[in-house]
Amino acid sequence: MSKVKYFYDPETLSYRKIERKKGTTLTYAGLFLLASALFAFLFVFIASQFIESPREREIARELDNMKLQYKLLNNRLDAAYAALENVEDRDNAIYRHYFEANPIPLEQRRAGFGGINRYKKYEGYDNSNLIIEANKRLDVLEKAIVVQSKSLDEIAVLATDKEKFLAAIPAIQPVKNEDLTRMASGFGYRIDPFTKVRKFHYGMDFTAPRGTPVYATGDGVVERADNNASGYGKHIRIDHGYGYVSLYAHLYKYNVRANQRVKRGDLIGYVGSTGRSEAPHLHYEVFKDGERINPINFYYGNLSAEEFNELLQQASLENQSLD
């Protein structure tokens, strides 16, 4: 039951009962309901800004997980790029260099895709940049792998040719170290043994007893084995292909004939002192495209590093040649 309220009337000097009008009561009730609704709305609005619903928490967890997965994916892409770069570096610096093939420039290895927008379907989302960037990196990586695969196919073909080349190139010492008396003279200016005049010596002289075996320094075909070249006496020329020819002079006798195919290490003749020679020795020359070149650069096939350094020191001495 509602309380009855009174007010003091100074004219009558008495208390009078307050009579509330029916319309006023309705107005107060309406104001109360409106205020309550407004308060409830403000409460819900404020709560929605600071308190997540279960669904919002679930969506937030999914979003965080997606970001984590993209981060892990990018880490894996970084590792894949690093591994590919290692292969590319070896491809350019070792394989292609070794087989005398031009290196593949980075611009070609990392080329993107021109023309139409390949990533339009990923646009318009909150995390479009993440998705587009990841797909771009994957596409570039896939293309780089294709380029590297084709390069290795090319290297495989070059390796087959290179195997033949490596077998043909003059690559061993024509007289074994244990059979040598000494390495008498190298490539360069030397004193002529007959005129005593300083002149250019186009080969290397290996001193050894008469009859010491002489070996082919690379695969090839015997171009000539005769005594018809001035100064060389009995000598052999082997055509190795690829522009290389080796010459073995002042021989005692031959063990091969013209047009015979020989392998590296085959016995082709014996040390002598025929032709313009002061003492038994082998005069050895190497030609590349018709030009005489220093044979010292072609002994990697059967000499250790120490033996090669010793041979290099002896060959560099400007002494008297034997022919």
Rank of each mutant, 00 (worst) to 15 (best):
Y232C: 01
E278Y: 15
S48G: 07
A225V: 01
V147Y: 02
D64W: 09
R198E: 11
E223S: 08
F7L: 13
N92D: 11
I172M: 12
L68T: 14
F287A: 07
K288P: 03
F32N: 14
N177H: 12
I116G: 14
H281L: 09
Y215H: 05
I172D: 00
R276Y: 05
L303P: 02
Y242M: 01
K196P: 05
V245T: 01
A134T: 13
R16P: 04
F39I: 02
F32L: 09
F43H: 09
Y215W: 03
R292L: 11
E154R: 12
V222L: 03
E291V: 11
A93L: 15
S149L: 12
A29R: 05
I172A: 11
P170N: 09
L34E: 07
G265C: 06
F200W: 06
R61D: 12
F308C: 10
A279R: 05
D64R: 08
I268W: 02
H97T: 13
D89A: 15
G290Y: 04
R182C: 10
L72D: 14
Q314P: 10
R264H: 06
I59C: 02
I116Q: 08
S149C: 12
A37Q: 01
L38T: 12
A208S: 03
I238R: 00
R264E: 07
I155P: 01
I104K: 02
Y270C: 05
L152I: 02
D239I: 03
F165G: 00
T195V: 10
P103Q: 04
L33V: 09
Y252H: 14
Y70H: 05
L77T: 06
E19K: 04
I104M: 06
N302G: 04
K288E: 02
S36H: 12
E52P: 10
L77A: 02
K196A: 11
F43Q: 08
E154K: 11
G211W: 02
I172K: 02
T24P: 05
Y189N: 09
K5R: 15
